[in-house]
Amino acid sequence: MAKISFAQKIKNLFSSHSKEDEEFFEDLADALIEGDIGARNAMELVDQLEAECKDGKIHGQEAILQKMKDVLSTYVKSVEFKPLENKVNVWMMLGVNGVGKTTTCAKIANSLVKSGYESVVLSASDTFRAAAIEQLCYHGEKIGVRVVNHQHGSDPSSVVFDAAESIKAHGGGLVIADTAGRLHNKENLVHELEKIDRICSQKADEGCYKKILVIDSTTGQNALRQAEVFNEAIGVDAIVMTKYDSTAKGGVAISIGKDLGIPVFYVCTGETYGDISLFDSEEYLNTFLGI
């Protein structure tokens, strides 16, 4: 059975209610929860929307959706990072196993190379999962980007160190570092990330270090919890949403923006290297709400 998008649920909501009364707003909150906004955020957002609609005498599907978009747009932000020329830039890619982190590293590298920024090196810093090193080397070969890697089980921070040194020796560029994501052993993961974080901070030039979290946009509130863990451990500058399309519930970008203030950098929509684009908050909200 095909999944009903949040936009379709909203459309159904308006057609099944003759007026925007208390029951309508309760059902709207339920729809937001199903759209991965989370219960607390859904209630807060709907309370705010209901109050603003009442004060402004706003009625009808078009006007209410526009007001809802205004409310949500304060939380959903886009961001674009660009590596600075002739500087050592480091982007540490974070995320749990299975979200498409290694492939996302390759997609970002490929996108930058295609746009004319050729000084990119991939750092295979997920040394825990043997397949991750092989996978990144495979991607590097396919897209023509050099991969710095050590043997399986070696110190992840030493791989970043070598990649950054290599970039520095070539007069600057960008290191995209793939890292491990073993959340079931949170203490070890945090300890490991803190060490890599220190090395990245030391090796990158001022203002050239970014921590980017990859989340699977179909996992909803799990993705929010992952963002909380990584943000608490070392801080997160932006997220990349994988497996994103208009049928995905996708509301987690709103939750992460509202609760943690983290903007979205890229969205990935498929398996190929070209299936990545900069996040457009306007387009996202229009799709989410069916405007």
Rank of each mutant, 00 (worst) to 15 (best):
58 I>D: 06
79 V>H: 00
129 R>C: 06
127 T>C: 00
139 H>K: 02
69 K>I: 13
48 Q>Y: 06
125 S>L: 00
132 A>Y: 00
51 A>T: 08
48 Q>L: 14
123 S>L: 01
69 K>D: 07
78 S>R: 05
130 A>Q: 05
91 W>A: 09
97 N>C: 09
134 E>F: 00
91 W>S: 00
99 V>K: 04
59 H>Q: 13
119 S>H: 12
142 K>L: 13
125 S>I: 00
46 V>H: 06
67 K>M: 08
112 L>F: 15
134 E>C: 01
65 L>S: 02
77 K>Q: 14
98 G>Y: 11
111 S>I: 00
48 Q>A: 13
113 V>E: 07
76 V>L: 10
68 M>E: 06
141 E>L: 03
47 D>W: 06
143 I>Q: 11
138 Y>G: 02
73 S>R: 13
48 Q>C: 07
69 K>W: 05
62 E>G: 01
88 V>H: 07
79 V>S: 03
124 A>I: 04
131 A>M: 01
66 Q>V: 08
71 V>W: 02
102 T>F: 09
117 Y>G: 05
131 A>Q: 01
145 V>K: 03
61 Q>G: 03
106 A>L: 05
106 A>T: 10
119 S>E: 14
110 N>V: 06
49 L>M: 13
116 G>V: 11
118 E>R: 10
117 Y>Q: 07
113 V>L: 12
50 E>R: 15
69 K>T: 07
71 V>M: 03
44 E>L: 12
79 V>C: 02
79 V>M: 04
108 I>A: 10
77 K>V: 04
62 E>A: 09
141 E>I: 01
108 I>M: 12
89 N>G: 10
57 K>Y: 10
52 E>L: 14
60 G>H: 09
59 H>Y: 12
84 L>H: 13
122 L>H: 05
50 E>C: 10
53 C>W: 05
143 I>K: 13
115 S>G: 12
80 E>Y: 06
92 M>S: 04
53 C>V: 15
71 V>Q: 06
61 Q>K: 15
103 T>Y: 05
118 E>F: 01
53 C>Q: 11
117 Y>H: 05
118 E>V: 00
93 M>C: 02
52 E>Q: 15
81 F>P: 08
64 I>F: 03
76 V>T: 09
58 I>E: 10
51 A>H: 03
94 L>W: 06
140 G>A: 08
54 K>P: 02
120 V>K: 11
121 V>I: 15
50 E>F: 12
100 G>I: 05
107 K>V: 10
103 T>F: 06
102 T>I: 10
57 K>C: 02
103 T>W: 05
75 Y>G: 09
68 M>C: 12
128 F>K: 00
145 V>P: 11
67 K>G: 04
121 V>P: 01
72 L>W: 08
108 I>K: 08
132 A>V: 03
55 D>T: 11
144 G>S: 14
94 L>I: 08
49 L>F: 11
100 G>P: 09
112 L>G: 12
101 K>L: 04
